[in-house]
């Protein structure tokens, strides 16, 4: 029954991915159960199975332990019933997988939108053109007192305009948040403003959902086109506030730096 060894290893791997990752995630974001999406899970499991099969078949003994029992069933006329049963099980699993693929579902199409689509090189807002590669926040000044004042003013802008969706703790859980798909961005998360330049954030705020390129489809964000509602200064100051409040640092583009 040594054939059970790789099976158990694979099952442990499956359990870790299926329950371990959501468990860790639920500790980080209480109240959620962040499962591994099916699309990723399939890829994970393919390689978990492949890797453990390779590990266990590296030596002749290991190989025979796995192949032996199967070969025995198929080669031994006295185990005809077992052979039939195994064939039915294998065929059945195949049929089940195929059925799962083709059966009609009521799920909406999967989310395909790119969260951080490639920005254009220039952006038109406030009746001007901005080059996103060189754009800097003019209110991020050296003077500490001045910076603090700007940031405070940005906070006022945030709570007058942005708070309703992005929430008082900037977690993307404001009073209106539940109504949107995509959900409002969570600025505290390391995956959002923490890895973006200020010019990118400026672009996203100024032109809002309608300014997203086609990768942002199909559910275009409900973010308003703020350059028609706020002044340039207010947008920049609100950006200062976002970084200050979350403790993140805006990404600084280095020369030729990717990522």
């Amino acid at each position: 029954m040594k054939i059970l060894k790789p099976v158990i290893a694979i099952l442990i791997g499956y359990a870790l991915l299926k329950y371990g990752i959501p468990l860790i995630g639920s500790k980080m974001h209480p109240g959620t159960w962040p499962v591994v999406p099916t699309s990723v899970m399939k890829m994970y499991m393919f390689f978990v199975v492949a890797a453990f099969l390779l590990i266990f078949t590296r030596s002749e003994e290991g190989y025979n332990d796995i192949i032996g029992p199967i070969a025995d069933i198929y080669a031994n006329p006295s185990k005809k019933v077992a052979m039939m049963a195994l064939s039915v099980i294998v065929g059945g699993v195949g049929a089940f997988v195929a059925y799962q693929y083709v059966k009609p579902t009521f799920e909406p199409p999967v989310e395909l939108r790119s969260i951080h689509p490639a920005p254009p090189s220039t952006v038109k807002a406030f009746n001007k053109s901005f080059s996103l590669q060189t754009l800097k926040n003019p209110y991020r000044v050296e003077d500490k007192a001045e910076l603090e004042k700007n940031t405070l003013e940005g906070g006022v802008v945030f709570f007058k305009n942005c708070f309703f969706c992005h929430g008082d703790r900037l977690l993307g859980k404001g009073p209106f948040a539940a109504g949107f798909n995509p959900l409002p961005a969570n600025f505290v998360d390391v995956g959002t403003i923490a890895q973006l330049t200020e010019s990118f954030v400026f672009w996203r705020i100024s032109t809002g959902g309608p300014g997203l390129p086609s990768e942002g489809a199909p559910w275009i964000s409900a973010m308003p086109v703020w350059h028609t509602l706020l002044s340039e200064e207010e947008v920049w100051k609100a950006i200062l506030f976002l970084y200050d409040y979350t403790g993140h640092h805006p990404r600084v583009t280095s020369e030729g730096g990717e990522e």
Partner: peptide
């Protein structure tokens, strides 16, 4: 089949 289809513009 494994990755989403993106049709280039």
């Amino acid at each position: 089949f494994g990755i989403p289809l993106i049709v280039p513009a």
